[in-house]
Simulated scan of single mutants.
Amino acid sequence: MPRSRPGRVRAGLPRRRSRPGERDRTIPGLSGAALAEIRRVERRDTRLWPGSAGWAWERWRDFVRHPARRQWDLYESGVCTEWACCGDPWEARERLDTVMAAMSRRGARELRRLIDTLDARY
């Protein structure tokens, strides 16, 4: 019996459907190898979940780009009224550091280059 072609086998597989409201959280500007490595790190590390690096990237990017970012002081009130619904930007930045520490040098260098751009803006 002849072997089935791989393309035909893949075409017969069911497609992964995303849940309503679910988006693919990737970090723009990274290579495919770096994104694949981030996904492997997210699966391996128990402190992370699938998409946590993308979530952290979005939180940190949005915080740095926000015009009132300098008015937000964690020690003043202890509770952020503006970012409470979206997540703590400092926690997001720490999560990015966790991901970079678990990546290879090459992948971490790519991610660090993007994060350093945001850090310089902050």
Results as ranks from 00 to 15, higher is better:
G29R: 04
V79G: 07
D73N: 10
R105E: 14
T26W: 11
S4E: 15
R10I: 08
R106P: 07
P89Q: 02
R59T: 09
M103R: 12
A36W: 04
W49K: 06
R44S: 09
R109M: 09
A92R: 00
V79H: 09
R43L: 08
M103C: 02
R93A: 02
A68L: 11
A101S: 07
A33K: 13
T46R: 12
R106F: 11
E58M: 06
L48H: 01
W57D: 03
I27C: 11
L35T: 15
A68K: 13
Q71H: 14
P28F: 01
W57T: 01
G87D: 04
V79S: 07
W90E: 06
R69I: 04
L48Y: 03
R95S: 08
W83M: 00
R65W: 12
C86K: 13
F63V: 02
V99H: 03
S52P: 00
E22M: 10
E76Y: 10
A101V: 06
P89S: 06
R17D: 15
G21F: 08
A11V: 10
G7M: 12
E94P: 03
D24M: 06
P50M: 05
H66A: 13
G32C: 04
W90R: 02
M100L: 09
A84C: 05
A84K: 08
S77G: 11
H66S: 06
P6K: 13
L35H: 10
R69N: 03
R65V: 03
E82C: 08
L111V: 08
R105F: 08
C85Y: 15
G29K: 04
G107D: 06
Y75C: 07
R40C: 09
G29V: 01
R25A: 10
G32W: 14
G29M: 02
V79L: 04
G54H: 04
A53D: 05
R43T: 07
P14S: 09
S31H: 08
W57L: 00
S31D: 09
E58I: 04
E82D: 12
E94K: 03
S4V: 12
P20W: 03
A56T: 01
W49H: 14
R25F: 06
M103V: 05
W90K: 00
P14Q: 14
S77Q: 13
D88S: 08
G78W: 00
R16I: 11
A101E: 15
D45F: 04
T98W: 05
R3C: 14
A102G: 02
L48K: 04
I27M: 00
Y75I: 05
A36E: 13
V41F: 07
P67Y: 05
S52L: 01
L96N: 06
C80W: 08
P6I: 08
P14F: 03
R70W: 05
R109S: 11
P20V: 05
D62H: 08
E42L: 02
W90Y: 07
L111G: 05
D62A: 10
A11L: 11
R40G: 09
A102Y: 07
L96K: 02
D24N: 15
D45I: 07
G51W: 01
A101Q: 13
R61Q: 12
T26R: 15
S18N: 15
R16F: 06
L35Y: 12
R113G: 04
G78R: 00
P14V: 04
A53T: 03
D97V: 02
